[in-house]
Design a protein around this nucleic acid. Structure first.
Lengths: 350, 350
DNA sequence: CTGAAAGCGCTTACAG
DNA sequence: CTGAAAGCGCTTACAG
């Protein structure tokens, strides 16, 4: 099946040494035009391409990078991957995707799985993990680092001196509260995330800070923790509403991400709330479907593709700095001025 | 930075030959328990992992597969990729993603880009291409095939004897028409696709067939061609409605995919149509957001992850057969019984 | 059960 | 400007 020719075939047919072929392959200029032409002709005729793996064997650099992602099915990560892929390609590198579990799986020594591939570097998208798994992850990273440069995306304890790109979650949350306060809201809920997650921790900090600046009290029942899916978001809001007198229902919700926001829309509608009049909702990630939800979802655009590219730049730069990633609030129809007084309560007609 | 040990280090430290180390590495059983234990201890202590690239160098198989995708940002392809990834992993292979343009780009001989990686095989997701690009693609495939086994996903001219997995588009379209006819619809539009696309061609065949079976006429103005984005879908429906007297407006739309369906919802709403009463819509791909659109979108689930897995199986089997992929109609709220008489026409109030 | 040796397809000094 | 030779880190017959 394989009709691959090798550098020897080319050399033989062109009547030169393999060293010379190698030289024209790599575009070295110390080759006479005549021989270069001759060699190139043979290469073209035989459709020859040097084996990248043989190259990697000798040159100590494989020109391939890796990125480990929690899950590709969330378009958020697909966007980061795409950005990273393009960034790598621009620098002549390939980009390989690894599922999150290649790092946290305890059966196969995790970091080594990546080391095996002899990557020139790897980007790691952090995500919340329960303490002991996180412990294992941190050890994996330490280990991995001995083999190749790494860059982290997400929130990392300052104690670990990894090159990192992260969002200022506190800033995002604070600004979002500010935006909603500007619309007259005072009962603002925050839904999603895990109490132990550092990212969410900082989100909470910004949330409280925003409330404080508006001289609003922090109300415990307006803070619900849950995973990042629509179902979990729906359930979390539903439970919050159940536990509160309608008069105390939040008039605005800040959702962990767009999926959670979608779930909240669903719950609100099933409860007979009018959107956005009775409940304003802000999402995060600005997924492609956000403009097509009803009402069109206001969301934080986290410029994921740019993030992926920047991670590659940082990785290739070899520097150890920490960067903050850019974000933008995209206003659509899901947020409305708060109606004075209590939100109307209607029985569900959905 | 690299603290990698080699097989020589291990051999030296364990006091054996590299051949022996290689044997325990590969789990060969012709090693005495004593030496095996000794070697394994050293491997563990030094955290040694054999270089997969050196292995690939000698063993002629790299245990890595490829998949080329039009775009990862469409969750549809992300799902296929995920399925293929898992399928590959299950067989001990890695799966590498390549963007579509690595095949159609004319600057770098396309197929060779993949050949360079010495993949053990590659899956190719077909998509419509204008004739001359498609011509180039077909040549690329022929070329690529000389280097490694390939499997195609999509619609391929029977003349090319590639192993292929495809959907029976005619079947899907026919069934969808049947479903809508069952709801009493007679003015059924088909929106999306390209006239020259073979997949869409077959979709058209099924569409016509469905109409015929219901003894309905094929109406030219109910067939709109457009790309696969929400914006294009929105524009296509808008134009269709503009060109028709409201009395002749379709009461049901079959959309190329969920994105197009989302666009159609948008246009319908802006035109003041009630959904689903005035217009039923069926999408395709059953994206994660389908249940959260208003009304929740009825869609064809194409079981993309399964598709990806099956493509891997076929690739690894080495057979040249053609398979049909499974699909399911997922009924939600976006389709309603057709109201008798003409659809109400209201001025847009959106 | 184990080792010495050749070889995979390249790149890279080192000579000339 | 060009070639002979060593070497990258493994696997795989071939002997023993």
């Amino acid at each position: 099946m394989s009709v691959n020719s090798t550098i020897y075939d080319i050399a033989a047919e062109a009547g030169v040494s393999i060293a010379t072929v190698s030289r024209v392959l790599r575009g070295e200029r110390s080759v006479s035009p005549a021989t270069r032409e001759k060699v190139e002709a043979v290469i073209a005729r035989r459709n020859y391409r040097p084996s990248s793996i043989a190259r990697g064997m000798t040159s100590k650099t494989t020109h391939s990078l890796g990125i480990v992602l929690p899950k590709l099915l969330n378009p958020n990560y697909a966007m980061i991957f795409t950005g990273a892929y393009d960034g790598a390609r621009r620098h002549g590198y390939s980009m390989n995707m690894f599922p999150w579990k290649s790092l946290t799986d305890q059966r196969s020594t995790p970091a080594l799985l990546l080391a095996e591939r002899r990557l020139d570097g790897v980007i790691i998208c952090l995500e919340y993990l329960p303490p002991e798994e996180n412990e294992r992850l941190m050890r994996s990273l330490q280990e991995l680092r001995q083999y190749m440069p790494i860059v982290l995306i997400g929130c990392v304890p300052a104690a670990f001196e990894y090159p990192t790109i992260s969002y200022n979650m506190a800033d995002i949350a604070r600004s979002t509260v500010e935006y909603l306060v500007g619309l007259g809201h005072s009962k603002i809920a925050l839904i999603g995330g895990v109490e132990a997650d550092r990212d969410d921790l900082r989100r909470d900090v910004g949330y409280r800070q925003g409330l404080e600046e508006a001289q609003l009290p922090y109300v415990d029942s307006y803070r619900a923790y849950c995973g990042g899916t629509a179902e979990e978001g729906a359930a979390a809001l539903d439970q919050m509403l159940s536990s509160l007198l309608p008069a105390h229902w939040p008039t605005a919700v800040i959702a962990l991400n767009d999926l959670v926001a979608m779930g909240c829309q669903d719950t609100a509608r099933k409860r007979g709330l009018r959107l956005p009049e009775d409940l304003s909702i802000v999402g995060c990630d600005n997924l492609f479907c956000a403009p097509y939800l009803i009402p069109a979802l206001t969301s934080i655009d986290t410029h994921q593709q740019l993030l992926g590219q920047k991670a590659v730049e940082l990785l290739l730069s070899g520097e150890t700095r920490r960067e903050n990633a850019a974000w933008t609030l995209v206003r659509r129809d899901s947020c409305a001025p708060c109606k004075s007084g209590e939100p109307a309560f209607r029985t569900a007609g959905y």
